[in-house]
Design a binder for these strands. Structure first.
Lengths: 344, 344
DNA sequence: TATATTTACGCAATCGGTTGCGCTCGAAGA
DNA sequence: TCTTCGAGCGCAACCGATTGCGTAAATATA
């Protein structure tokens, strides 16, 4: 039984109440110039008739949708999907839709996505940059048109926007300090692409920790990959363990490469953590599955998403705010067996 | 430098070419009644002026958007996020947006999401059901209004719609056969909520395999959980291993519980696979990280997403098609160490 | 009582495409 | 030469909500 009955519009409600559509429109959103009783009457009838607002019409008129665009590298990564989960939850509570587009870490694709989202007239944008991206002009279109843009995690210092991040420097410092406290003397680092500030800062934190403990920095132990993929982790570990004077610890800028390191080392009979302590970053699910469990730094991924969404909504609701703030969330050092050289 | 220049519309193009807006509108989409030269002229000018179509206006007129809604349980699960990745890729290539909403496996939330998406005037819907869902009326609104609905993975037999699935029965059969071939005699099963057909069918496949090999079915080995969470996997394993006559193999309907089983068993000194062979389902990333690596059944998650998106787009483009087809994709048995009792 | 405010609401244009129907003109057929 | 027909394009009414401006009535102020 098809029931293609026409949708109820504010016109239907207006004529039934013998008022104008504008009054209905205003009443529905508690406009100050509409009388108390009128507002009640309109809302009551709207409810009875099953009125559902046509956001598209409103969007057309206002030339802006209540949709938040999200640009990320890959959806199917633990950190990203958790973050999106947070965004979706928060946006959904505010009556906003979330539309996703992935760059696959390609700069070209990111630009194309930005154009597409702009053409979709999104009301706000949340971005975690592609690995490749080094230029940021493709975001100016949004800023010029007062569309709030919030960057999360993979941000850029060149951009003067709202940001939701963690203190990567402090986290790198903390992680490396932990390794030092465990008695590690030669600590290697798997860094990500160094133009991406999150990786740069983790590396800086690592270096700073060594410096503070007067540990000489051996450049041959400071590696930097591109994607920190399993393959890269494998290659890097192979390389390190073949050195005449191999490291006794690795601090990897992500869990993926760290897990690869553990697998490679175990395969070659190297005891973890006795011979080689391994520390990751992200607290991905795999960090709990690998044997021994991987010490790592936890990102509050879901919260970062929620907060980013809140920032977007805040700007949407208070157009007056121009300030761009950077919100820094706490990370947590999660110590597991892969770095526990000392019993406690 | 703000450049809030007004957007180019078809009216601008029309007046500049001294034709009517309708002609421009038609020319831009190669309408048959528009002359070849006119089409060229319009497109050329549109390109020059940087015209970008206002989808919102079109959506308002057509009362339908080019956005595909996706209803899933949780974004941050490997299978789901991979599927979404596929959907996004395919939709994006077709110029469609993808909006996500998660039910968190709650029936109530799923209904709310359906309403919200319907109110957003989505042009198509892709659904993977919440674990709780047992009634399906909340989808009839879409069907009644000719909005294509495609179910993926977690489908229902009660629904006469397009579906993209795998053959769960065959997969369960295949997985269990493999365990039997490895010499397992007492094979337990971790099933999911049995009203969700994917889990029911996996269980059926498992039972059928036993039957075909004349293995008596021991009801005490056939467990069914709710979510197949790590905790459930833990409890179920604990229970099984405490039986007077414990199983020598477990076929879990997902990798999460299977991994828990391995962890629990290892912790209690039970050799995998010698004493207990473990088979999972999904080929989640963790299946490769756990030691020993987990044998499992692989889902073509990304492809399922792509195909689901294609189905939606097909219906959108050819309104005439009413047939509802069920597309069944191949699964693959991935044999790893966790079930290799016999050397090959 | 006359004037200034406030309160409460209506008018009508607007957002940018879409589409059914109608019109024109040149070419083909009778 | 007259009719028919199709190719090619214009008219104008939508789609549903928003909003600046105007106004009438009610209330406050002088």
């Amino acid at each position: 039984m098809k029931q293609k009955k026409r949708e109820i519009t504010i016109y239907d409600i207006a004529s039934e109440l013998n008022v104008s559509p504008s009054t209905v429109s205003r009443a529905l959103k508690d406009h100050y110039s509409i009388g108390k009783e009128m507002i009640e009457a309109v809302k009551k009838l709207a409810r009875e008739r099953g009125y559902r607002p046509n956001h598209i019409a409103a969007s057309l008129r206002k030339n802006k949708t209540n949709t938040i665009g999200v640009m990320i590298s890959w959806i199917n990564r633990p950190f990203i999907s958790s973050m999106i989960s947070g965004i979706e939850e928060e946006a959904s509570n505010a009556g906003c839709n979330v539309i996703i587009s992935q760059s696959h870490d390609s700069f070209e694709q990111e630009i194309a996505n930005a154009r597409a989202l702009y053409n979709s007239r999104i009301g706000g944008l949340i971005v975690s940059l592609a690995m490749e991206t080094r230029k940021y002009n493709h975001f100016s279109t949004f800023l010029d048109n007062d569309i709030p843009v919030v960057f999360v995690d993979r941000v850029s210092d060149d951009l003067n926007c709202d940001k939701v991040v963690i203190d990567n420097f402090a986290a790198g410092l903390m992680a490396t300090n932990h390794l030092i406290e465990q008695g590690c003397k030669r600590i290697a680092h798997f860094g990500g692409a160094q133009h991406r500030s999150i990786y740069k800062q983790r590396a800086m934190g690592y270096l700073e920790a060594l410096r503070r403990h007067n540990i000489e920095i051996d450049e041959s132990l400071v590696l930097s990959g591109e994607m920190l993929s399993p393959e890269e982790g494998h290659r890097m570990t192979e390389h390190l363990l073949s050195l005449p004077n191999p490291p006794d610890a690795i601090f990897s800028a992500n869990d993926t490469a760290a897990v690869s390191a553990i697998q490679y080392a175990k395969h070659h009979g190297i005891k973890i953590p006795q011979k080689l302590a391994v520390m990751g970053f992200n607290n991905d699910p795999v960090s709990l599955i690998i044997d021994p469990p991987l010490s790592t730094v936890s990102h509050p991924a879901v919260d970062m998403g929620k907060i980013a969404a809140r920032q977007v909504l805040k700007h949407r609701d208070h157009k007056d705010i121009i300030t761009s703030e950077t919100i820094t969330l706490k990370t947590e050092l999660i110590v597991r067996e892969s770095t526990m050289k000392r019993k406690r």
